Computed example of a mutant assay.
Amino acid sequence: MASQTEPEIVLYDLACKKNTCFSLVVWRIRLMLNYKKIPYRTIFLEFPDIEPTLKGLGLVPLESSKGKYTVPAIHHVPTNTYLIDSVPIAEFLESTYPKPSLPLTSEFGSQIQEQLVPVIGSSLQTSVLARELPILNPRSQEHFRRTYEPLVGHPLEELIHKEEEAWTSVDKETRAVGELMLKNRAEGPFVLGERPSMTDFFIVGLIQCVRVVDEGVFQRLTKYPGFGEIYEACLPFMEKKD
Protein backbone atom coordinates (compact mmCIF):
# COMPACT_ATOMS: atom_id res chain seq x y z
CA MET A 1 0.00 0.00 0.00
CA ALA A 2 1.10 3.57 -0.57
CA SER A 3 2.35 5.70 2.28
CA GLN A 4 -0.39 7.34 4.33
CA THR A 5 1.09 10.71 3.38
CA GLU A 6 0.55 9.97 -0.30
CA PRO A 7 -2.83 9.71 -2.03
CA GLU A 8 -4.01 6.17 -2.58
CA ILE A 9 -7.02 7.38 -4.55
CA VAL A 10 -7.32 9.94 -7.34
CA LEU A 11 -10.92 11.13 -7.39
CA TYR A 12 -12.32 12.65 -10.58
CA ASP A 13 -14.91 15.29 -9.74
CA LEU A 14 -16.94 18.03 -11.41
CA ALA A 15 -15.41 21.50 -11.49
CA CYS A 16 -17.13 24.71 -10.45
CA LYS A 17 -16.16 28.31 -9.76
CA LYS A 18 -16.17 27.70 -6.01
CA ASN A 19 -13.31 25.18 -6.30
CA THR A 20 -15.13 22.68 -4.14
CA CYS A 21 -17.14 19.52 -4.62
CA PHE A 22 -20.81 20.11 -5.39
CA SER A 23 -21.82 16.99 -7.30
CA LEU A 24 -24.30 15.05 -5.17
CA VAL A 25 -23.09 11.73 -6.59
CA VAL A 26 -19.40 12.49 -6.08
CA TRP A 27 -20.14 13.58 -2.53
CA ARG A 28 -21.31 10.05 -1.72
CA ILE A 29 -17.84 8.74 -2.55
CA ARG A 30 -16.04 11.70 -0.98
CA LEU A 31 -17.91 11.13 2.28
CA MET A 32 -16.93 7.48 2.16
CA LEU A 33 -13.26 8.33 1.57
CA ASN A 34 -13.31 10.83 4.42
CA TYR A 35 -15.12 8.43 6.76
CA LYS A 36 -12.58 5.68 6.10
CA LYS A 37 -9.70 8.21 6.20
CA ILE A 38 -8.35 7.03 2.86
CA PRO A 39 -5.77 9.51 1.54
CA TYR A 40 -6.84 10.94 -1.80
CA ARG A 41 -6.50 13.88 -4.12
CA THR A 42 -9.02 15.38 -6.51
CA ILE A 43 -8.89 16.19 -10.20
CA PHE A 44 -11.73 18.55 -11.11
CA LEU A 45 -13.06 18.29 -14.67
CA GLU A 46 -15.26 20.62 -16.68
CA PHE A 47 -18.37 18.96 -18.13
CA PRO A 48 -16.99 18.80 -21.72
CA ASP A 49 -13.73 17.25 -20.48
CA ILE A 50 -15.27 14.34 -18.58
CA GLU A 51 -15.76 12.00 -21.54
CA PRO A 52 -12.36 12.49 -23.24
CA THR A 53 -10.52 12.30 -19.92
CA LEU A 54 -12.22 9.12 -18.72
CA LYS A 55 -12.01 7.54 -22.17
CA GLY A 56 -8.30 8.25 -22.10
CA LEU A 57 -8.05 6.29 -18.86
CA GLY A 58 -9.61 3.28 -20.56
CA LEU A 59 -12.90 3.53 -18.68
CA VAL A 60 -16.20 2.43 -20.21
CA PRO A 61 -19.53 3.77 -18.92
CA LEU A 62 -21.97 1.34 -17.36
CA GLU A 63 -25.12 0.30 -19.19
CA SER A 64 -27.16 2.00 -16.45
CA SER A 65 -25.69 5.37 -17.47
CA LYS A 66 -26.89 4.86 -21.07
CA GLY A 67 -23.39 5.18 -22.46
CA LYS A 68 -22.69 8.54 -20.83
CA TYR A 69 -19.41 9.25 -19.11
CA THR A 70 -20.00 10.69 -15.66
CA VAL A 71 -18.16 11.38 -12.43
CA PRO A 72 -17.24 10.05 -9.95
CA ALA A 73 -14.40 8.00 -11.29
CA ILE A 74 -11.35 6.89 -9.34
CA HIS A 75 -7.83 5.65 -9.84
CA HIS A 76 -6.68 3.34 -7.06
CA VAL A 77 -2.95 3.99 -7.18
CA PRO A 78 -1.63 0.91 -5.29
CA THR A 79 -3.34 -1.53 -7.69
CA ASN A 80 -3.54 0.77 -10.73
CA THR A 81 -7.30 0.15 -10.82
CA TYR A 82 -9.67 2.56 -12.57
CA LEU A 83 -13.39 2.58 -11.82
CA ILE A 84 -16.39 4.66 -12.88
CA ASP A 85 -19.83 5.11 -11.25
CA SER A 86 -20.56 5.47 -7.55
CA VAL A 87 -21.92 1.94 -6.95
CA PRO A 88 -18.91 -0.10 -8.14
CA ILE A 89 -16.58 2.48 -6.61
CA ALA A 90 -18.30 2.14 -3.23
CA GLU A 91 -18.16 -1.66 -3.45
CA PHE A 92 -14.46 -1.54 -4.30
CA LEU A 93 -13.67 0.84 -1.44
CA GLU A 94 -15.61 -1.24 1.07
CA SER A 95 -13.85 -4.45 0.06
CA THR A 96 -10.40 -2.83 -0.14
CA TYR A 97 -10.75 -0.73 3.01
CA PRO A 98 -13.17 -2.73 5.21
CA LYS A 99 -12.53 -0.78 8.42
CA PRO A 100 -14.43 1.13 9.54
CA SER A 101 -17.22 -0.74 7.83
CA LEU A 102 -19.94 1.12 5.94
CA PRO A 103 -23.20 -0.68 5.13
CA LEU A 104 -23.77 -0.04 1.44
CA THR A 105 -27.34 -1.30 1.38
CA SER A 106 -30.09 -2.04 3.86
CA GLU A 107 -33.81 -2.66 3.60
CA PHE A 108 -34.60 0.46 5.62
CA GLY A 109 -32.08 2.57 3.75
CA SER A 110 -33.50 1.48 0.41
CA GLN A 111 -36.97 2.39 1.62
CA ILE A 112 -35.83 5.92 2.44
CA GLN A 113 -33.96 6.39 -0.84
CA GLU A 114 -36.89 5.13 -2.89
CA GLN A 115 -39.22 7.59 -1.17
CA LEU A 116 -36.77 10.47 -1.19
CA VAL A 117 -35.93 10.64 -4.89
CA PRO A 118 -39.42 11.21 -6.34
CA VAL A 119 -40.54 13.39 -3.43
CA ILE A 120 -37.84 16.02 -3.64
CA GLY A 121 -36.81 15.50 -7.24
CA SER A 122 -39.27 18.01 -8.65
CA SER A 123 -38.87 20.61 -5.90
CA LEU A 124 -35.08 20.60 -6.06
CA GLN A 125 -35.09 20.59 -9.84
CA THR A 126 -36.96 23.88 -9.87
CA SER A 127 -34.74 25.36 -7.16
CA VAL A 128 -31.30 24.06 -8.10
CA LEU A 129 -30.95 23.58 -11.86
CA ALA A 130 -31.20 27.27 -12.76
CA ARG A 131 -29.15 28.39 -9.78
CA GLU A 132 -26.43 25.92 -10.69
CA LEU A 133 -25.53 27.79 -13.87
CA PRO A 134 -23.75 30.74 -12.20
CA ILE A 135 -21.36 28.50 -10.25
CA LEU A 136 -20.24 26.69 -13.41
CA ASN A 137 -17.39 27.90 -15.58
CA PRO A 138 -18.40 29.11 -19.08
CA ARG A 139 -17.58 25.88 -20.95
CA SER A 140 -19.56 23.83 -18.46
CA GLN A 141 -22.44 26.31 -18.53
CA GLU A 142 -22.83 25.80 -22.28
CA HIS A 143 -22.74 22.02 -21.89
CA PHE A 144 -25.22 22.16 -19.00
CA ARG A 145 -27.71 24.18 -21.05
CA ARG A 146 -27.41 21.87 -24.05
CA THR A 147 -28.04 18.86 -21.83
CA TYR A 148 -30.89 20.01 -19.62
CA GLU A 149 -32.88 22.64 -21.50
CA PRO A 150 -34.20 20.11 -24.05
CA LEU A 151 -35.37 17.97 -21.12
CA VAL A 152 -37.36 20.77 -19.44
CA GLY A 153 -38.45 22.39 -22.70
CA HIS A 154 -37.47 25.97 -21.87
CA PRO A 155 -34.56 28.06 -20.53
CA LEU A 156 -33.42 26.78 -17.15
CA GLU A 157 -33.97 30.17 -15.52
CA GLU A 158 -37.73 29.78 -16.03
CA LEU A 159 -37.80 26.83 -13.63
CA ILE A 160 -37.67 29.24 -10.72
CA HIS A 161 -41.15 30.50 -11.62
CA LYS A 162 -42.48 27.05 -10.69
CA GLU A 163 -40.52 26.86 -7.45
CA GLU A 164 -43.19 27.64 -4.85
CA GLU A 165 -45.77 25.41 -6.49
CA ALA A 166 -43.28 22.53 -6.66
CA TRP A 167 -42.31 22.77 -2.99
CA THR A 168 -45.92 23.09 -1.86
CA SER A 169 -46.97 20.04 -3.87
CA VAL A 170 -44.54 17.75 -2.00
CA ASP A 171 -44.51 19.44 1.40
CA LYS A 172 -46.27 16.62 3.26
CA GLU A 173 -44.27 13.91 1.52
CA THR A 174 -40.96 15.67 2.20
CA ARG A 175 -41.85 15.97 5.87
CA ALA A 176 -42.87 12.29 5.99
CA VAL A 177 -39.63 10.98 4.49
CA GLY A 178 -37.64 13.29 6.78
CA GLU A 179 -39.44 11.89 9.81
CA LEU A 180 -38.71 8.39 8.55
CA MET A 181 -34.99 9.23 8.60
CA LEU A 182 -35.31 9.75 12.38
CA LYS A 183 -36.85 6.34 13.08
CA ASN A 184 -33.67 5.03 14.75
CA ARG A 185 -32.78 8.32 16.45
CA ALA A 186 -32.86 6.73 19.92
CA GLU A 187 -30.03 4.41 18.88
CA GLY A 188 -27.82 7.07 17.28
CA PRO A 189 -27.70 10.08 14.96
CA PHE A 190 -27.64 8.19 11.66
CA VAL A 191 -30.34 6.52 9.56
CA LEU A 192 -29.50 3.06 10.91
CA GLY A 193 -28.67 4.35 14.38
CA GLU A 194 -25.17 4.39 15.84
CA ARG A 195 -23.05 4.22 12.68
CA PRO A 196 -23.34 5.82 9.24
CA SER A 197 -24.35 3.96 6.12
CA MET A 198 -24.35 4.77 2.43
CA THR A 199 -27.93 5.96 2.85
CA ASP A 200 -26.68 8.77 5.10
CA PHE A 201 -24.13 9.70 2.45
CA PHE A 202 -26.82 9.53 -0.25
CA ILE A 203 -28.91 12.03 1.72
CA VAL A 204 -26.04 14.30 2.71
CA GLY A 205 -24.55 14.33 -0.79
CA LEU A 206 -27.84 15.73 -2.00
CA ILE A 207 -28.03 18.31 0.78
CA GLN A 208 -24.42 19.46 0.32
CA CYS A 209 -24.96 19.86 -3.41
CA VAL A 210 -27.88 22.14 -2.60
CA ARG A 211 -25.81 24.09 -0.08
CA VAL A 212 -22.98 24.79 -2.51
CA VAL A 213 -25.45 25.94 -5.15
CA ASP A 214 -27.64 28.11 -2.92
CA GLU A 215 -27.61 28.64 0.85
CA GLY A 216 -31.25 29.73 0.88
CA VAL A 217 -32.47 26.49 -0.68
CA PHE A 218 -30.27 24.57 1.76
CA GLN A 219 -31.91 26.36 4.69
CA ARG A 220 -35.33 25.61 3.30
CA LEU A 221 -34.60 21.91 2.88
CA THR A 222 -32.96 21.41 6.27
CA LYS A 223 -35.94 22.93 8.09
CA TYR A 224 -37.74 19.68 7.40
CA PRO A 225 -37.35 16.94 10.03
CA GLY A 226 -34.46 14.57 9.48
CA PHE A 227 -32.55 16.46 6.81
CA GLY A 228 -30.71 18.81 9.15
CA GLU A 229 -30.07 16.11 11.74
CA ILE A 230 -28.52 13.66 9.27
CA TYR A 231 -26.48 16.47 7.71
CA GLU A 232 -25.07 17.54 11.08
CA ALA A 233 -24.24 13.95 12.00
CA CYS A 234 -22.11 13.65 8.86
CA LEU A 235 -20.24 16.95 9.23
CA PRO A 236 -17.11 15.20 10.61
CA PHE A 237 -16.81 13.41 7.25
CA MET A 238 -17.10 16.61 5.20
CA GLU A 239 -13.97 18.50 6.19
CA LYS A 240 -12.12 17.63 2.97
CA LYS A 241 -14.13 19.13 0.14
CA ASP A 242 -11.49 19.39 -2.59
Rank of each mutant, 00 (worst) to 15 (best):
R28V: 07
L57H: 01
E132R: 15
K18M: 04
S140C: 02
E239M: 08
T5M: 13
N34W: 10
S110T: 15
Y82L: 14
K241E: 10
V26Y: 00
H76F: 11
S65C: 08
P100A: 06
T79C: 02
I160M: 10
L235P: 01
G228W: 07
T147H: 15
L124E: 02
L57T: 00
M181E: 09
Y148T: 05
V177G: 04
V152R: 08
G58A: 03
L151E: 11
G56K: 08
L129M: 15
C234P: 08
E187I: 00
F202I: 03
M238A: 13
C209N: 15
V217W: 05
N80V: 12
A73F: 13
G58E: 02
P189Q: 05
T96K: 13
A166Y: 04
L124F: 01
R185Y: 14
L62I: 13
E179T: 01
T126G: 00
R175Y: 02
A176I: 01
E114Y: 11
P134D: 11
G216I: 04
E91P: 00
P134I: 09
E165L: 08
K183F: 09
T70P: 01
Y12W: 12
Q113C: 08
K68F: 15
I160A: 12
P78N: 10
E163N: 04
Q141K: 10
F202Q: 02
R175W: 02
P39S: 05
L133G: 00
P39R: 02
V212K: 03
L206M: 15
G188C: 10
P150D: 06
E157R: 13
V26Q: 00
P61W: 05
H143G: 00
V128P: 01
V60Q: 14
V210H: 01
V119K: 13
T42Y: 04
I84K: 02
L156E: 07
D214V: 01
V128K: 02
L45Y: 06
R146S: 14
F237L: 07
